[in-house]
Amino acid sequence: MKSDTLHMMLVYTKTIMKAWFQYRSNALLSSLTVFLREATGIVVIYFTLLKFGTLGGWNIYEMLFLFSLLFLTYGIMIIFFTGLRDFGKTVRDGGFDRFILRPRGLLFQLIFTNADWFAAVGHGGLGIALFLISAGRVGIQWNAVNILYYLFTVMGGVLIQGAIFLLLAALNIYLLETNSLKELFYWNMRKFAGYPISIFHKAIQVCMIYVVPFAFVNYFPAQYLLRKPDMAQYPQLYLYITPIVGIVMYLAAYGFWKYSLKFYKSSGN
C-alpha cells in the first residue's frame, strides 16, 4: 500500500474518531443505547426459550451463538461501510460530488470518511458479549481449525453485508432513494437471520439463502460448529462457502457499482 494512501486512511480515521468521541460521555451513552436496544430483543427471546426450552431444536445458548455472529459481523462491517449505508444522504448533501472532484477512488473515500462507531461498539460489543456467554456452553471444540474457520467466516459475513450495502448504494444512483429497499431487503431479512432458518416457510428459506444470503452470515457457519440435525435439509457444501459467497457477492456488487457510476447525476440541478 502506498504511504500516502496509508497516511490518508490515518487522517480520515483520526478525524472520525475525533468526531465520534469528542464528547466521551455522549459517545458512551450512545453506544450503550445501541447495545441495550439490540439486547432487549435478545432478552425477550431468552425468557421465551426459558419457558419453551428449544426453538426448532436449538437451545438458548445455541440461539445466542447464532445471534452473536450476526451482531459481531455487523459491528465490524459498519466500521467500513457506514458511507455506503448512508450513501443517499451523502448524495443529497453534495458530499459525493466532493469525492468525485478529488483525485482519489470514490469507494475508498466513501469507506474511510465515515464510520458509525456507536453502532460498531453497540453491535460489536453485544456480539462479543453473546459469544462469551454462549461459546463455552454449546460444545464447540475451539481448536486451530475451528478458530480459523470462525475468523474466515466472520470476514465472509462482513463482506456479504457490505456487498448488500454496496448494491443498495449503486441502486441509489438510479432510484435516488433506496431507504425502503434497505428496510425491506436488509433490516427485515436481518430480523429473520436471528433464528434458525429451518423454522421458516420454504419461501423465506430460499430468500435467506439465495436472495439476501444472511444464512451464510450466521446460520451455516453456526451449523458447521454445532452440527444440528436440521442441517440435513441443506447441501453440506453450504457449511464451507461463507468466505467465497462474501467475496463473490462483493465483487459482483463492486462491478455493478462501477457500472452504475456512469449514470450518476450531480445534485443541485
Binding site: A19, Q22, G95, R98, G268
Partner: peptide, 14 residues
C-alpha cells in the same frame, strides 16, 4: 480547484 455553493468542501467535524 473548485468551489460550489451546494458542495461541501470541508469535513465539518475536523
Amino acid at each position: 480547484g473548485v468551489l460550489f455553493a451546494d458542495i461541501p468542501v470541508l469535513q465539518k467535524e475536523d
